[in-house]
């Protein structure tokens, strides 16, 4: 039982990381806490619901194309939002930035409800995802493994991009000191816009990937955003590798917590989040003083 929950926890952790990675990237560069990240995730799930039937009749490739297409659309929406709205408020109070993204939460929620209705929808699972692995006496559904694999792929691509490409260098520079890259003659606006687009893409990608694995409805944004906040804060806001470690920690702890002390499981993560905030984050960004 322990082993089963441990593996489930790692799977959940990977999912959490996929969600939180976009949030932490955006915060690292533009110092914006995007409350609408969960809404973009939800949008990705609903778009996947819309697109999957076009490509896929249960094939894996079709599903992948659909999810990526959905994520690209949401990424585009993110870019448009950044250019039209966020760009005007980078200089203002942090609170105002938060309020703007909260406004986006409200807008997306109602638009989703207008288009797809208030009922839950289900996304068809590709055939390759159905079934279970049997190890000893334990059944492991295949689907979480697929998510884990996809997550791993994303992590590897991310690390590759961040470490070895010019875009990655710019990203790291912008996270370290965004004033400096402007002084170096790099188009700061372009960096901000593209990072927000990538963040939106990642949120929607996670949403699309997760969509066959449960109900998709217009209320999922809130749970998703709270989970993503926890991971980002524990990992150190803006710290990608910290987020990866934190996501695994939270995922495993949730899974084991359900097994051993089900009542405390939910509170535990928040307690850890609070403790990390008070005694500094795992990552380097987590200073208490401004």
């Amino acid at each position: 039982m322990f082993a089963v929950q441990l593996i489930n926890g790692l799977m959940e952790g990977m999912m959490l990381f996929l969600i939180a990675s976009g949030l932490t990237l955006v915060f690292g560069v533009s110092r914006i806490i995007n409350f609408a990240h969960g809404s973009l995730y939800m949008l990705g799930a609903f778009l996947a619901y819309q697109i999957v039937p076009i490509f896929a009749d249960g094939s894996l490739v079709g599903f992948a194309i659909a999810v990526i297409a959905a994520a690209l659309i949401v990424g585009l929406i993110g870019i448009i939002f950044e250019v039209l709205v966020l760009r005007r408020i980078y200089h203002t109070d942090e609170l105002m930035q938060l309020i703007i993204t909260i406004a986006l939460v409200f807008i997306i929620r109602d638009v989703v409800r207008m288009i797809w209705g208030a009922n839950s929808v289900t996304v068809q699972m590709p055939d390759a995802f159905i079934g279970a692995l049997i190890v000893g006496d334990n059944y492991f559904p295949i689907f979480p493994f697929m998510i884990f694999g996809a997550g791993l792929l994303v992590v590897m691509i991310m690390i590759g991009v961040i470490q070895f490409t010019r875009a990655g260098i710019l990203l790291r520079a912008a996270t370290d000191d965004r004033g400096m890259i402007a002084l170096l003659g790099i188009n700061e606006k372009l960096v901000f816009t593209s990072v927000f687009g990538v963040g939106s893409f990642l949120a929607a990608f996670a949403g699309g990937l997760q969509s066959p694995f449960g109900d998709v409805n217009y209320l999922m944004d809130e749970t998703v955003i709270v989970g993503a906040f926890i991971v980002c804060v524990i990992g150190g806001l803006g710290n990608l590798y910290g987020a990866l470690a934190a996501a695994m920690l939270v995922g495993v702890m949730n899974a084991l917590g359900v097994l051993y002390f089900p009542r405390l499981a939910m509170v535990m993560t928040f307690l850890i989040m609070a403790a990390v905030l008070i005694f500094r984050s795992l990552g380097r960004q987590g200073g208490g003083a401004r």
């Binding site: 709205v85 005007r88 408020i89 203002t92 109070d93 105002m96 309020i99 703007i100 909260i102 406004a103 986006l104 939460v105 409200f106 807008i107 929620r109 109602d110 638009v111 409800r113 207008m114």
Partner: peptide, 18 residues
């Protein structure tokens, strides 16, 4: 869609008169 209306008003307020 009252939430949509509230969201748009919020957006307007923050952008127009913080």
């Amino acid at each position: 869609e009252w939430e949509l209306v509230v969201g748009l008003i919020l957006l307007f307020i923050v952008l127009a008169t913080p």
